[in-house]
């Protein structure tokens, strides 16, 4: 039952990856990333017996990924007055196909890993690698700073899924530290986004190359 639930949650997570890769609307993308974060926040609760450590982590994750980060991002979107990722470096269709291929690669790669027998039937490892690579794809193919932040978030989600396998061993402080890191990162990016849009009157990160020393 546990593995049934967790596997289906992970399938949903991977579907969210596809959806993120194929949408150009920033607000929708933020909502999708939020949904992914919250789904992942629920996972430890399903996997492990209930204790205070777990409850704190779950509450923290949902608070940060489900409330604070989306709020920050939405306010950044509002401040910068943009709605869409226009002209990505690679078209949405192409990134989607690459995303599907990368997911397939993740699945093909997993049997080669020396995993514990208990972990082999699960989708954790392929989902983790697929999500991680999706994050990279977003980071490399999108232009707008907000999409870059999203890519970073998805990348972290991928790492988080992998960490779930080790959750027993992962101390609370490490988990909290990662969350704080993420929050600070998003916060800084939010400020940077504001500055980019004021300075260049656009959110195109490729414009940042103008800052390079001549």
């Amino acid at each position: 039952m546990v593995s049934f639930l967790s596997n289906h949650l992970l399938i949903l997570v991977m579907l969210l990856n596809f959806a993120l890769l194929s949408t150009g609307r920033l607000s929708l993308a933020v909502r999708l990333a939020t949904a992914q974060g919250v789904l992942l926040g629920l996972l430890p609760g399903i996997l492990h017996p209930l204790n205070w450590h777990l409850m704190v982590i779950t509450a923290g994750i949902i608070l940060v990924k489900g409330v604070i980060i989306p709020w920050l991002l939405f306010s950044a979107i509002r401040a910068a007055e943009i709605k869409r990722e226009t002209e990505p470096f690679l078209g949405f269709g192409a990134t989607l196909v690459i995303g599907a291929a990368v997911t397939a690669l993740a699945f093909l790669y997993v049997p080669r890993l020396p995993l514990l027998a208990a972990h082999q039937g699960h989708l954790f490892v392929p989902a983790s690698i697929a999500t991680l690579l999706t994050g990279f794809l977003l980071l490399t193919t999108r232009r707008k700073a907000i999409s870059q932040v999203l890519g970073y978030l998805i990348l972290e989600n991928g790492i988080f899924i992998f960490g779930l396998l080790l959750a027993e061993a992962m101390p609370l402080m490490v988990e909290a530290g990662v969350l704080l890191d993420l929050l600070a990162g998003t916060f800084v990016m939010g400020i940077v986004i504001g500055h980019i849009s004021r300075e260049f009157s656009s959110l195109d990160t490729s414009r940042l190359s103008a800052l390079r020393e001549k």
């Binding site: 991977m14 596809f18 194929s22 269709g93 989607l96 196909v97 995303g99 599907a100 397939a104 699945f107």
Partner: peptide, 21 residues
């Protein structure tokens, strides 16, 4: 429309991946 069809393609490929696994 091609993009939505590609999405359907990805879904189908993902389903295939899950059955092959």
């Amino acid at each position: 429309i091609p993009q939505v069809l590609l999405m359907a393609l990805s879904l189908a490929a993902f389903a295939l991946l899950l059955t092959v696994r």
